[in-house]
Write a protein that binds this DNA or RNA. Structure first.
Lengths: 190, 190
DNA sequence: CATATATTTACGAACGATCATTCGTACCTA
DNA sequence: TAGGTACGAATGATCGTTCGTAAATATATG
């Protein structure tokens, strides 16, 4: 066993890519199977159905943010530092796990039943966590008196395009990181 | 003829709503016909095919931004004022034509051939126009020395969630407008 | 170590469902 | 009478998925 990635994991990796570029609904099992090097029928030796793939990917993406938030809270005391770490988290996910961004933002709506409900809960819980940080920073007088939901959505939306950058160099990432933080914290006005 | 909206226009209106909530690929002609009060076959008395609907909607959405940019340039001299007007434009479109935002951001990728090429040109032209404003503002020392593309994408992405607000009151819209501008221009730091 | 057995993985063929679309025809209106 | 609008029925294509079966792999037994 030389391969460190099982075929099932490979399915999720390739599926995430396709879902990102074409969308869940427009991606067929046949196309996906082809990408993995399997016949469509062989697919069902590994997964229960198409939606299971989306479920797993969505779960991974929301776990990424949930764990990220947890780390932020463990590693920083001051809310303003936590806020900065949250921005870092979004940038890290966008560059390190590009397809997670798309799925987290757009494709989850193709879930159904309990998987959809659970994703919504998880997303809401993340949002609440970040909003709590914003409110604490506000209470300490470190950020302006702004609606926390608006600030949250600006951070979410403001890092929603980064995954379009194909092969960002290390220096480019750090430049974007710096400028985005500057924008979020101090705006563009000179 | 009491109706001021032709059936063909109604098709585009309902289609835009469905594309926004379910996505283009996941929206069937049957469903769309049902929403308009027609049988699927009757649909083709009005339109050439499914993709034509997306084409028209995408064209309208990009025209919205193109005309908006033109107005901004005609009505304001100083780049910093133009920039503010651009932000207003995005907020106006998000609230006044919610489905245009989704289509402009996401669904256009389902276009093909010349329609896709033309949309890309139009989008690029809008982006170039806004970036030019940002650079002029920078040259005048009115905004920080930031990468114009980053600023542009933050504005685009930062107003990409507004259409989720279902029935915003007038006061809510103006509150969001004020806070978003404050964020874009001066950031969240107190 | 070799052999038999069980389990997993892969496949071709086919299923029913649904897809966008076409066609011939009827209706409605000008 | 003519042109637009609507419809039922049917088309071929593609969808996700199932099924029986064969190959490959792992496990157990001699």
């Amino acid at each position: 066993m030389v391969e460190t990635v099982t075929k099932k994991e490979l399915i999720f990796i390739e599926a995430a890519k396709l879902f990102q570029s074409k969308g869940y609904a427009a991606t067929s099992i046949r196309e996906l199977a082809d990408q993995v090097g399997l016949k469509p029928s062989s697919f069902y030796s590994h997964i229960k159905g198409k939606e299971e793939i989306l479920e797993i990917i969505c779960k991974k993406a929301s776990a990424l943010f949930a764990e990220g938030l947890e780390n932020v809270l463990n590693n920083h005391d001051k809310p303003i530092k936590q806020l900065e770490a949250i921005i870092d988290l979004h940038i890290d996910v966008a560059f390190g796990n590009p397809s997670a961004i798309t799925v987290f933002n757009d494709e989850w709506r193709h879930l159904s039943g309990e998987a959809l409900a659970e994703f919504r809960r998880s997303r809401k819980s993340y949002q609440d966590g970040v909003i709590k940080i914003i409110k604490e920073a506000k209470a300490k007088g470190q950020v302006k008196d702004l609606d926390a939901t608006i600030v949250f959505n600006l951070i979410i939306g403001g890092s929603r395009w980064l995954h379009f950058i194909s092969k960002p160099s290390e220096s480019m990432v750090s430049k974007i990181r710096g400028q985005l933080k500057q924008l979020f914290f101090d705006g563009m006005r000179e």
